[in-house]
């Protein structure tokens, strides 16, 4: 069942098109990774989904309802952590957490205590004294204490230390087990890889790749690490081979999905001592999309800031 969906979402700020026909779809119980560099339109998409910004064109729906018109109804079942958490300097962390929980319509107080302990937050301190990470913890604790069906998290771990990042991941996995859906925007690719079932890559306001990690990998092919007795000649020009790197005695390279058989046959002539294959990491996938169009990325970067 679809929990969240955007169809042809377009947002213009004056002449600048921040989003250009974005389509994403999050199913029930899915953890959906939303990745892309700064200024590519991640936060704009999330804000439209929350009814904070109004789409210029296209539709954004959550639980089958329009995210602009039915915002309040939708928000009773959604928890959101913004990318840049600004709090009231003269309220304490504890007060802000309670306020946030109450404004959604209540939450679990035992869970609030547990989360404060797990995230190691001092709730009696004024928000003005909190670091970025601590402000993020406040927003995360408020979000995770609420019993909701959908979590929308905008780079929730960008200020957290690795220990806290792990705590966060445990809670995401737990929420997923309970059948909750999560839309996670991030540029920490290892995190997305660990948590997400599906991934969408956005660039300059367009989704350029979407699917499960497996599908994305299949499209890209395999990374091979080969050590041979004799050097392998003319590998550079071989069809479907790219990204050749010398790693100690061995060579590492990427092979396109349809060409694995040909490449293995060719390589085996030179006395294989060791061969390892691995799926490409998300980082490699991501880089491939951006490196391939270096020019476009550079010109697009001017859109932000």
């Amino acid at each position: 069942m679809t929990v969240l969906r955007t169809i042809g979402l377009t947002k213009k700020f004056g002449d600048f098109a921040a989003l250009n026909g974005v389509n994403i779809e999050v199913g029930e119980g899915e953890v959906y990774g939303f990745i892309g560099p700064n200024g590519s339109g991640k936060s704009t998409t999330l804000r439209i989904l929350l009814g904070i910004l109004k789409a210029t064109e296209g539709r954004a729906e959550i639980f089958g309802k329009d995210s602009w018109k039915d915002a309040v109804e939708i928000h009773k079942r959604v928890a959101y952590v913004p990318g840049d958490v600004n709090l009231w300097p003269n309220l304490t962390g504890g007060e802000v957490i309670d306020l946030f929980i109450k404004l959604r319509g209540g939450g679990n107080l035992d869970r609030r205590q547990e989360l404060i302990r797990k995230f190691d937050l001092d709730p009696t301190k004024k928000c003005r004294t909190y670091s970025k990470g601590n402000r993020q913890k406040v927003a995360l604790i408020a979000a995770l204490s609420s019993d909701v069906d959908l979590y929308i998290l905008d780079e929730p771990t960008s200020g957290l230390d690795p220990l806290m990042e792990r705590v966060f991941q445990e809670y995401v996995i737990e929420a997923k087990k309970q059948g909750k859906s999560i839309l996670l925007s991030s540029h920490i690719l290892s995190e997305v890889e660990k948590l997400c079932d599906k991934v969408a890559i956005i660039r300059e306001g367009r989704i350029i790749e979407t699917g499960t990690l497996k599908e994305l990998r299949h499209l890209t092919g395999t990374i091979l690490l080969v050590e041979t007795r004799e050097p392998i000649p003319a590998l550079e020009g071989f069809k479907g081979v790219s990204g050749i790197q010398q790693k100690g005695q061995a060579l590492s390279f990427q092979v396109d999905a349809g060409e694995v058989d040909q490449v293995i046959r060719y390589v085996s002539q030179f006395g294989v001592i060791r061969i390892e294959s691995s799926p490409p990491t998300l980082e490699e996938l991501f880089m491939r999309h951006y490196e391939g169009t270096g020019q476009a990325v550079e010109s697009g970067a001017g859109g932000e800031s």
Binding site: G51, A71, V72, E73, H75, P82, D84, N86
Partner: peptide
């Protein structure tokens, strides 16, 4: 301007 309305409006507040 200080980005704090987002917190309120992303909850069940019209």
């Amino acid at each position: 301007k200080n980005g704090r309305l987002e917190h309120i409006l992303s909850r069940a507040v019209s």
